[in-house]
Design a protein around this nucleic acid. Structure first.
Length: 1061
RNA sequence: GGGCGAUUGGCUCAGUUGGUUAGAGCGCCGCCCUUACAAGGCGGAUGUCACAGGUUCGAGUCCUGUAUCGCCCACCA
């Protein structure tokens, strides 16, 4: 005999995880292997960086993935979700270096490469553990047997093979480029790792003397600069070759623009034109002089360095701006770099890698094809930095140089100027453009292939507007610098040849061919510029001594993190091995990520997938919103406004967190999540402000005690209890789970009555015939199917918020507040309870399934309880024949959509709900005591009466009201409170109870309101334009509505008349 | 400078191709610890849909402009 059980009144979310997550893992419910009988559904996780713990954005991202994966698994797909983490090169190394510096006062160079890498691995291990712990607490259904890390051997193999293939195809090259140099981290960083910050600065105007000026020539030219310290690397001054022509052109463009400009823009354009005309007046003579001098090959004397530089003509010098000419420092400015290449002036790199000025600058020339290092041959250029500045940091040298320039009479003017300064995202130091060797991926073809995939629809991006971000970025087709001067990452698989005797001789092609005879896994090319071989090895370690007389040394640099991330969808599946996994699961089904990495990651995955696998990595990309705080700022630990999902889970449960974030996931680009402290002493919410969120301790305004924050450093602060950072937004999810729990508890309470019956081995159930169903049964089944259909279809469009809100409303309002309340009466009436139990169990069963992807823990818990009290809970023979799996994780998705959807009944039921609500409102308004029974009548057409009369017991049970008369001839009680609906009028008999004044007041307000509507509608309907132009359907609806309103008004007026008597 | 997005009750947000009286959660007010649920029930109040024009019989929804805010990309000596 089965034992009945009692359940607590409140859902115990705090221990739910312990009950179910280990159960799922032990039973391998998330593990997937290729199954030819099923269709695959694959997602790869956007691998979180091992730089730190997960934040709310990750919680959102992973919840959304889990919802889809769990639904697809239940729908019968072979669902696989591959988890993993990303080594995040620069970011992680920077974190560990910072720690090393702060705790031990050491730099990476102090401890050496191997020790440093070891420390980063330790860091990685600890954060990977933490991240995975967080993900598991979120209750995600990843296949943990397939956990990957972007530096693990499987991924490394994919990286090596990709690099080798690209190298073989000539898609990888090494060139000298201006890189963004982070002198603090001593590495180049990509454009994407830089933020521009507005800073107050100056324009310094300098006079460069003209050497040997001829009559008519200028004595000196004036240039303006925001970075005077770079002047030592100047190799020319540029002016426009044809200033008159250029000014004419600009003038024409402005006049054209003005001709078809809108009024609002005219002022601005006219001002510009005026300025231009004035400029022509004041500067043209000077500009033409400059152009002539440049043509004549005039030279200037570069102050401080005291060397000659030419005046050249180049279109970069805009005649309409500044002094008309511009100093060119090709090795220290991106624009000047291009000018240098065009004008073929030398490139002088005056900075060392540590950000200080070099005693010997490096000098290069560009011949249109390649750079040549001429440092040794050009001492007058390489010794451009006067001794006094050598070893100074660039910025420090600036002040001294400005002073010296002023002393030399060269500085003629200083202007205040606000400008943008590039700052390294990681080290927060100013970026210096720096001439360096760099490995690049040629992007022209690769980018085009990735663009095509989106333009021809093979890859769809949701919401669609983000396609533009993707396409715009790719269309620039800028070559991708892939080297990073770091130690943490995939080392570039290129080896250089060094002679063992220390000379700079190189082996011949024949020697290489002999050394690597018969090997297709080695490729080498000759680098014209550096006069050396580049040897690439597909896999494994290079034998350093393979060429007699030479030794091979590997490039020191590592690859950009995104190089390995780009391979993630296929590297995780074992590519390049053509495994069953790869064939079965690739392409993956959808990628879910945030908008900030559409370009860096999504675009590169598409091109890498196409290149390596010949197919797109995923047909769909869903971009979810970004979570901001209440000020609209991004959450981050450094601002103190970040939330650890674990804190939310502890306070509200994983289900509540998941429901909360899914609720927020609309198609807008960001959502705000107000964040507050919770006082550890009294539990009070303490509003988080921009002021208090950066303090080490905060005082609770309620209990007046202090608590610590993440900033607590001092001992006395650390000793205080920690105030967690949470958001009460998640109460909604917690409350909902509790509601669902209690609804389940209630349903099971009645199902338990049959426990003895149910637990017999030969227990069977008969299908429920349609005729046995009551109207409310048909209504709830119809609503259930309608909602389930919307939910299922909505998720296919990634419309999470709508789906979740729809199902929430259905569960709470329709199932709990309406159906369960209705069906209580039947459950408590022996001869009526059988069908009611079956329907209520059926609907709950369906709800558990539909909710499971969103709130997996509570649904699994109830599922197991339901298995005890109602092992079979279907309505049809098919339902009853189906075996329910032990875990809801593998339960079949609810798909009984079409059969039971009945729009008519859904519509009709609204009348019952309206009447019920009206009766309740009257009771409330008239302060009728709770236990006082009232009588009411409804005057309505026969067909409405036919719907309402069977509901009579429910008016009693749900509103303590007895329906005494219902139909076209129902007579209103003499002293009543009334309400009207579209085609009904009700009166609650309030003999002896009524507050006549209150009632009159309410009725008069209602009358005025109705008159307002009626007037509006009459006006609308008397408008011929409306009746003739609007669709007939709309006009008819308006007429019907007007008739209803008039009937209601009549009823209200009658009621008023009765009351006034 | 270019692009994208936002602006709806006290707060955070929904609002499907323009169509009757604009919704939710939290908060607020009143009544109720009614045998599923006080993390609850029943009822209630609160919105000139940022502003100004326009299109339309009809605009929160479409168009133009303005303001404020946010994000992305680029950047001039």
């Amino acid at each position: 005999m089965a034992e009945s059980f009692e359940l607590p009144k409140q859902y115990d979310f705090q221990t739910a995880w312990e009950r179910w997550y280990p159960y799922w893992e032990e039973n391998k419910l998330f593990h997937s292997t290729p199954n030819p009988d099923k269709k695959p559904f694959t997602i790869v996780i956007p691998p979180p960086n091992v730089t730190g713990a997960l934040h709310m954005g990750h919680a959102l991202n992973n919840t959304l993935q889990d919802i889809l994966v769990r639904m697809k698994r239940m729908q019968g797909f072979e669902a696989l979700w591959i988890p993993g983490t990303d080594h995040a090169g620069i970011a992680t190394q920077a974190m560990v270096e910072k720690k090393l510096r702060e705790e031990e006062g050491l730099t990476r160079n102090d401890i050496g490469r191997d020790a440093m890498v070891k420390r980063i691995w330790d860091w990685k291990d600890s954060f990977e553990k933490r991240i995975i712990g967080q993900l598991k607490k979120l209750s995600v259904s990843c296949d943990w047997d397939r956990l990957r890390f972007t530096l693990d051997p499987v991924c490394a193999r994919a990286v090596r093979n990709t690099f080798f293939t690209f190298f073989e195809k000539g898609l990888i090259y090494r060139g000298k480029k201006l890189v963004n140099w982070d002198a603090a981290l001593q590495t180049a960083v990509s454009d994407d790792e830089i933020n521009n910050e507005t800073q107050a600065g100056h324009f310094w105007y300098l006079n460069y003397p003209v050497i040997d000026p001829q009559p008519g020539d200028l004595e000196f030219v004036t240039v303006a600069t925001t970075r005077p310290e770079t002047m030592l690397g100047d190799t020319c001054v540029a002016c426009h070759p044809e200033p008159r022509k250029q000014l004419d052109l600009l003038e024409k463009q402005l006049r054209d623009a003005l001709a078809d400009a809108k009024d609002a823009e005219k002022d601005e354009l006219e001002a510009k034109l005026e300025a231009l005309l004035k400029r022509r007046e004041t500067h043209l003579e000077l500009l033409e002089k400059l152009a002539a001098m440049a043509k004549a090959g005039k030279k200037l004397l570069l102050p401080l360095a005291n060397r000659e530089i030419p005046l050249v003509a180049d279109i970069w010098a805009k005649p309409e701006m500044g002094t008309g000419c511009v100093k060119i420092t090709p090795a220290h400015d991106p624009n000047d770099f291009e000018v240098g290449k065009r004008t073929r002036v030398p490139f002088i790199s005056i900075m060392k890698k540590d950000g200080t000025l070099a005693a010997e600058a490096s000098v290069y020339t560009w011949d249109g094809k390649k750079f040549t290092n001429i440092t040794a041959d050009a001492p007058e250029l390489s010794r451009t930095v006067p001794e006094k500045y050598v070893g100074m940091k660039m910025l420090d040298a600036r002040d001294l140089m400005v002073a010296d320039l002023e002393a030399a009479g060269v500085l003629v003017k200083v202007e205040e100027h606000e400008h943008e300064v590039p700052v390294s995202d990681r080290s927060k130091t100013i970026i210096e453009p720096f001439l360096n060797d760099q490995w690049f991926v040629r992007m022209a073809d690769l980018a085009q292939s990735a663009m095509d995939a989106v333009t021809d629809g093979r890859v769809k991006i949701f919401p669609e507007r983000y396609s533009r971000t993707y396409l715009d970025w790719l269309s620039e087709k800028r070559d991708w610098p892939i080297g990073r001067q770091l130690w943490w990452g995939h080392r570039i698989p290129i080896w250089y040849v060094r002679a063992v005797d220390g000379s700079d001789k190189m082996p011949t092609e024949a020697e290489l061919a002999a050394a690597f005879a018969g090997r297709s896994d080695v490729k080498w090319v000759w680098d014209e510029e550096g006069k050396e071989w580049w040897i690439c090895l597909r896999e494994g370690e290079m034998n350093a001594d393979v060429i007699p007389g030479y030794t091979l040394v590997q490039d020191d640099d590592v690859l950009d993190t995104w190089f390995s991330s780009a391979l993630w969808p296929h590297s995780t599946l074992g590519w390049p091995e053509q495994s069953e996994d790869l064939k079965y699961y690739y392409p993956t089904s959808v990628l879910i990520t945030s908008r900030d990495i559409i370009t860096l990651w999504v675009a590169r995955m598409v091109l890498a997938g196409l290149q390596n696998c010949g197919d797109i990595p995923f047909p769909n990309v869903f971009i979810h919103p970004k979570i901001l705080d209440k000020y609209g700022e991004t959450m981050s630990k450094s601002k103190g406004n970040g939330i650890d999902p674990i804190d939310v889970i502890q306070k509200y449960g994983a289900d509540a967190l998941r429901l909360g974030v899914a609720w927020l996931s609309t198609d807008s680009q960001d959502v705000r999540l107000p964040v507050d402290f919770e006082c550890p002493h009294c539990g009070e919410k303490v509003e988080q402000t921009k002021e208090n969120r950066i303090r080490p301790r905060v005082k609770c305004p309620k209990c007046k005690q202090f608590f610590s924050t993440q900033w607590a450093k001092k001992e006395e602060d650390v000793a205080l209890p920690r105030g967690t950072v949470i958001s009460e937004r998640f109460e909604m999810g917690r409350n909902f789970c509790n509601k669902l729990w209690n609804a389940s508890r209630f349903v099971m309470m009645y199902l338990m009555e049959d426990l003895d019956e149910v637990s017999k081995p030969d227990y069977t159930l008969q299908p429920v015939a349609d005729s046995e169903l009551f109207m409310e049964d048909r209504w709830i089944l119809s609503r259930l199917c309608t909602m389930a259909k919307m939910f299922t279809e909505g998720l296919e469009r990634y419309d999470y918020a709508t789906c979740v809100r729809t199902l929430y409303d259905f569960t709470w309002d329709e199932f709990c507040s309406n159906y369960i309340e209705i069906v209580k009466y039947r459950l408590q009436t022996p001869e009526l309870k059988a069908t009611a139990k079956r329907v209520v169990a059926y609907v709950l069963d369906a709800l558990l399934k539909l909710w499971h992807p969103v709130i997996p823990l509570i649904t699994e818990e109830v599922w197991h309880l339901m298995a005890k009290v109602a092992p079979k809970r279907g309505l049809t023979a098919e339902d009853l024949a189906r075996e329910q799996p032990e875990s809801i994780v593998r339960a079949p998705w609810f798909v009984d959509f079409a059969g039971r959807i009945n729009p008519t009944i859904e519509e009709q039921f609204v009348v019952f709900q309206d009447v019920l609500k009206a009766v309740r409102e009257i009771r409330s308004r008239q302060n009728v005591p709770v236990k006082q029974d009232v009588q009411f009548v409804v005057k309505c057409p026969d067909e409405v009466a036919a719907l309402l009369l069977p509901m009579k017991p429910y008016f009693s049970s749900m509103a303590q009201a007895t329906l005494v008369d219902c139909g076209p001839n129902a007579a209103m009680p003499a002293l009543s409170s009334n309400a009207t609906g579209a085609n009904w009028e009700l009166g609650v008999n309030l003999e002896g109870l009524i507050d006549v004044e209150a009632e009159l007041k309410k009725n008069r307000a209602q009358r005025d309101k109705l008159i307002g509507f009626i007037t509006g509608k009459e006006k609308k309907l008397s408008n011929e334009a409306f009746t003739s132009k609007a669709p007939a359907k709309v006009v008819d609806a308006e007429r019907a509505s007007l008739a209803d309103l008039k009937a209601q008004l009549a009823a209200v007026e009658e009621a008023i008349a009765r009351l006034e008597k």
